[in-house]
Nucleic acid binder design. Structure first.
Lengths: 349, 349
DNA sequence: CTGTTAGCGCATTCAC
DNA sequence: GTGAATGCGCTAACAG
């Protein structure tokens, strides 16, 4: 059990005052070399460890930052958290994680409890685009706030995102280059900025290549296999049906592929597919799935760096920084046609 | 910015003392209903929020628990952390995460900084089996310590693991039931308990079925595709070669499967494979891979529960609890032979 | 029921 | 250079 030794204990032992001990421990210049060494040595001997809690209370800095994500057990958020932790740990910060499960109320609760816990900053991938009271409290309290991936539009708040528009554009452009013209899109809920941007990128790529945009080819799906399977069924009933899909999510892309194979449609020859997020499984599939990599590790590190800048620049009241990472297209079998000769497609009127 | 309002602020406003305010806020019985309501109301009006740091310092409880894992961006550990967070959050605890990257030194550092941060408990999947000084400090400080998945043998310390022996046994037994007799094993580093146990389970299943154990069929591999691919190459040069593999890791199993397919060996007819961990990709492959599920979500929740019990039972100085979860065999295509008739295998002398 | 006092462990004034 | 005093925000012990 052994009660924790404090600076008072070591002060008493050395018959000096706690203030002196504190100074010695903190490399305060106004202290004699002799006492400093003495203090350091006996501190080590007595197995002294600083109580960060007391320091936190008196300094107002807890050295904890809160990270709020929808869930932690996905590759994407896991990698982000990894990045945040690795970047922040060397600076003496601990990472507290909170999950929202896409629930706005829990998000608000999490923010409030983190604020109560006196975190030095909050990094969040938000679930809604409303600016609720807790967010205002964060600003009022002057706690550094950084959005990553999913942001809200707030004055003076920094964010780290990827260029989702570019991601959608690249994916679609790639499909066009493979010779596809009838390209469908699985979109997420477009009231969420990232999905809207991917959609717009898709649209723009079509326009830039002189391909007519077809509303019927855009389907809003959840990101799971069943949704992808159902969506592709709808598409195949269209006349003409599409010959490619750019999906805003890898799971929906997977579901689509499964459905297509069930119908003996050859991928990528007859039908090409590109997903989004570069989930690990896309790489391991025998028919590997092309996808857009969001470099979540980088995103996490970057979010942490932005926080660190914010916490350093105390002079600047406000500094709003928008970091936009470039998405990378990973071309795999599901969209790479071996020959550039356009394959036989079902004849279409 | 607006300075945080404290109980003193609201005390001054109401012309009472801070202690009374504290009592009202904490539902202390010895207080009049009138003042309680008054305090509560003005507290709300002044937007009072408790400073958990001050509470922590004075009570000695930070309401934070540290979770230490090799890395956070794997499905397994991600799911565990998710379980921990979900179980602990309703009890007012925050989860601080630390990564070791399988480095013993970083593990020790993490423990020490968590201790300094006055966490109320440490949940850890340890990287080595040595009992280093920081672990002793945890005990001396009487901080609840719970191992999960990878444990050390320490007196009075609880752990939550799966029955790895049983996992190895089930996997191997299943292969035997599919008609395989020449069953190889990819083992991890067997100085780590979990791998040793899986190996022993494998061995016992063979013995129980009257199958001779063959040392040559056991290969120590890392858990990645390349290692699996290399290992299977070695196996195929044996005479007779095995006709099945139980792999201690899914990635090695995947590598093996890739290599087998390269050689046009039919799976599962000619060669059956079972992995371990039930990584998401095993399910999504077109040739889905059989695996052992470790129910990481449950494991995380259980570890959290054990911690909660520990923190509640203050009377009992020591309580050592060993929770052992049952692994589940998930049978998929890579090992499920459609007919019970033993398929044509390469003839062997 | 409520006020007074004290302390959690530390760093930081201000004296000397 | 060092000591003494003070406060961070809160709760708990002891009075009354």
């Amino acid at each position: 059990m052994s009660k924790k030794t404090t600076i008072y204990d070591i002060a008493k032992k050395l018959d000096i005052t706690a203030a002196t001990v504190s100074r010695a421990l903190n490399n305060n210049p106004k202290i004699s070399e002799a006492t400093r060494e003495l203090v350091l040595k006996t501190a080590a001997k007595m197995n002294y460890k600083q109580n960060r809690l007391a320091l936190a209370l008196q300094s107002g800095k807890s050295n904890n930052v809160g990270v709020i994500v929808p869930r932690v057990d996905s590759n994407f958020f896991g990698a982000i958290i990894r990045g945040v932790e690795e970047e922040l740990n060397p600076h003496g910060y601990h990472v507290i994680i909170c999950q929202t499960h896409e629930d706005e109320n829990r998000e608000n609760e999490n923010i409030d409890t983190l604020l109560n816990a006196q975190v030095d900053g909050i990094l969040i991938s938000t679930t809604s685009n409303k600016i609720t009271e807790p967010f205002n409290r964060v600003l009022k309290k002057n706690t550094p706030l950084v959005f990553f991936d999913r942001r809200k539009t707030m004055n003076g708040v920094s964010s780290v995102t990827i260029n989702d528009f570019e991601g959608g554009y690249k994916a679609t452009k790639h499909l066009i280059e493979q010779g596809c013209t009838r390209i469908a899109h699985f979109s997420g809920n477009r009231s969420i900025e990232i999905f809207q941007e991917r959609y717009l990128g898709y649209k723009q790529a079509l326009i830039d290549s002189g391909i007519e945009f077809n509303e019927d080819y855009v389907i809003e799906t959840k990101s799971n296999r069943e949704a992808g399977s159902n969506a592709v069924k709808l598409l195949l009933e269209l006349n003409p049906p599409p010959e490619a899909i750019f999906s805003s999510g890898d799971f929906a892309a997977l579901g689509a592929i499964e459905e297509l194979r069930l119908r003996n449609i050859n991928i990528p020859e007859e039908f090409a597919v590109v997903g989004f997020s570069n989930e690990p499984f896309t790489k391991f599939m025998e028919l590997s799935i092309s996808s857009i990599d969001q470099s979540p590790l980088e995103m996490g590190k970057m979010a942490a760096k932005v926080f660190l800048e914010q916490v350093t620049n105390t002079d600047n009241i406000k500094m709003e920084k928008k970091v936009i990472l470039e998405p990378e297209l990973i071309i795999r079998k599901s969209s790479l046609k071996t020959s550039l000769i356009k394959p036989n497609l079902k004849k279409v009127t």
